[in-house]
Amino acid sequence: MTATLTEPKQRPAAPPKPRSTGWRRRLPLLPALFFVILVTQIPFLVTVFYSFQSWNLVRPGSQHFVGLQNYVDVFADSQFRGAMLNTVVLTVVCVFVSLLLGLGLALLLDRQFLGRGVVRTLLITPFLILPAAGALLWKTSMFHPNYGLVNFVFGGNTDWLSAFPLASVMTQVVWQWTPFMMLLILAGLQGQSKEVLEAAQVDGAGRWRTFASITLPQLSRYLQLAALLGAIYIVNSFDAIYLMTQGGPGTASTNLPYYIYQRAFEGFDIGQSSAMGVIVVVLTLIVATFTLRLMFRTFDVSSGVK
């Protein structure tokens, strides 16, 4: 998180002026600030409150305080654990694969070749399609056992969505997100300092060496940003699962957002679904912080090269 969220260099200590006048001047801005903090936090606080209640809409008047019981139940729920595992697998694999593919494609597009503009446009298209349309497109035109393009190419009549539900969903998500990663990394590549690359060449660094010791460290911030933004959205994947597999067969491709949705809006269990929501938020924060720290360290080792 550090890299992405740290602010640009702190301004040199504000010119010493009496604090009070500064605050009086800025007073009109305060309501905006309180407002935004309230508005973004209230729904979450209410969710936390609900998570301590036993409350099922199917049984009116059943609402009462149960302390941590919901959390105990949720952790004992094997479906929840399955959904949690699916979410982790989905997020990690999709972010990683689309980042890798995006890097490869960006490196390719950073070179001059005939028809580059056309290839770039083709590559970006998946990102511009409504995710709902993309999910339907993959469900029907790609994975359909009889008419799907995948079976047309590879032969056979596998029903991909029931045989490999999670992998199918992940394929669609990677397809959708690779162009985004590619765009970001391409922006990073094109912002590289020319002088450094030239210097490396003069010093006799090979192409691979140049990439590993100069390009990659320079790209690390872009890669982190791409991973962070991608992870925020992919953790929340809902459309693809809802439209392609409905979380099934069974719960084979259920992820947490979909499971919460099911429990709240199909099972009407407000208490437990709220508890799950709280757990998701805590986990997301932990995973995001951890992953970014890790990436930061991995890429920063060789950043001695300016």
Binding site: T40, Q41, P43, F44, V46, T47, Y50, I232, V235, N236, F238, L256, P257, Y258, I260, Y261, A264, F265, I270, S273, S274, G277, V278, V280, V281, T284, L285, A288
Partner: peptide, 12 residues
């Protein structure tokens, strides 16, 4: 708040 899945706060 940016990272909250919309499903989490959907109930309230």
């Amino acid at each position: 708040a940016m990272m909250l899945p919309p499903q989490v706060v959907a109930v309230p």
